[in-house]
């Protein structure tokens, strides 16, 4: 993994606090998009899933949105 500057995570990793990036990969009902739609690698998708679930637990993202 190459070292990145502080604000730019490597493409395959999203921090759970990075709500903007997480929100862009989630549908209007706040459900995670599948890999075909996000275009991420398998590894990145797993990281994204983990980060989203953490963010939901910490109320940075909703579980469901109407």
């Amino acid at each position: 993994m190459e070292k990145q500057t502080t604000t730019n995570m490597p493409a395959n990793h999203i921090d759970f606090k990075d709500v903007m990036r997480l929100k862009s990969n989630v549908n209007p009902h706040a459900r995670m998009l599948n890999r075909r739609r996000t275009g991420m690698t398998a590894k990145a998708q797993r990281n994204f899933a983990k980060a989203t679930k953490r963010a939901r637990f910490m109320a940075l993202l909703p579980y469901i949105q109407h």
Partner: peptide
């Protein structure tokens, strides 16, 4: 993980 360690994300700043 190593990647996370190297790249802290500053929430309030962002």
């Amino acid at each position: 993980t190593k990647v996370e360690e190297e790249n802290p994300y500053f929430f309030h700043q962002a």
